[in-house]
């Protein structure tokens, strides 16, 4: 099932063309890797998909609701003075999934505890999320996205703050998650060598164009 399609999307900031006539179709279970140099338009493309940026022209057709999209930003580190703990931050994924009025379900509490363990965040679960390391922040953001149980998961440079072991573990986790849940994953990265061969579709962006 096609969950989102971009038709001739262009983005222009002032006089700079960031994306030019991008056409992309995303179906359930897709694992798409967008690669390209800095400034190629990878992050903007992800922001378009989650509604954080508006295209200058073109249209987006989506067959999923807003809360079925989870986004992990490139700069995963929250504000240094953010008063939210790691546990509370991960639980915001459940808030997005269930809505702000619904009572927290016990399965979400259990789910957040499992994710905290899975992503090695047990020692910092009650720490303020602005006081953890960059790698921990990145894992926290991914755990939050997993708890949301999205149909479309957008990851912007998810390996940027991770060491080699964490990169490999995360890659395996993402591939397994994609296979198990049929969630479409779109990942922007310039590190594609650590991904297992043949599991994903690669899109190369250069100066805002798909090549």
């Amino acid at each position: 099932m096609v969950i989102a399609s971009l038709n001739n999307i262009s983005v222009k900031f002032s006089q700079t063309h960031v994306l030019n006539n991008i056409c992309l179709e995303i179906s359930s279970g897709d694992f798409i890797v967008i690669c390209g140099a800095n400034g190629a338009g990878k992050s903007t493309l992800l922001k378009i998909l989650c509604g954080l940026a508006k295209p200058s022209s073109g249209n987006i057709a989506a067959n999923i609701k807003g809360n079925e999209v989870a986004y992990v930003p490139q700069n995963a580190m929250p504000d240094k003075k953010c008063p939210i703990t790691v546990k509370e931050a991960i639980m915001t994924g459940a808030v997005a999934k269930n809505g702000i009025f619904k009572k927290t379900k016990s399965c979400d509490i259990q789910g957040s505890e499992d994710l905290i363990k899975k992503f090695g965040l047990k020692s910092v679960e009650n720490a303020l999320c602005g006081n953890i390391s960059g790698g921990q922040a990145q894992r926290m953001q991914i755990a939050r996205a997993f708890l949301q149980q999205p149909k479309l998961l957008l990851l912007d440079e998810p390996f940027s703050s991770l060491d080699k072991t964490c990169k490999e573990t995360l890659t395996k986790t993402l591939v397994d998650y994609n296979a198990k849940t049929n969630c479409a994953i779109v990942m922007a990265t310039h590190i594609i060598h650590s991904l297992p061969h043949g599991q994903y579709k690669t899109i190369k962006l250069e100066h805002g164009n798909i090549i």
């Binding site: 807003g66 930003p73 929250p78 509370e88 915001t92 994924g93 997005a96 702000i100 999205p150």
Partner: peptide, 22 residues
């Protein structure tokens, strides 16, 4: 009533918006 939403928005306005929180 809105405590969960307030926490999500204070955590990150962008992430709240991207994940469909008002």
């Amino acid at each position: 009533v809105f405590n969960k939403g307030i926490i999500a928005v204070i955590f990150s306005r962008d992430l709240a918006k991207a994940s469909g929180i008002a």
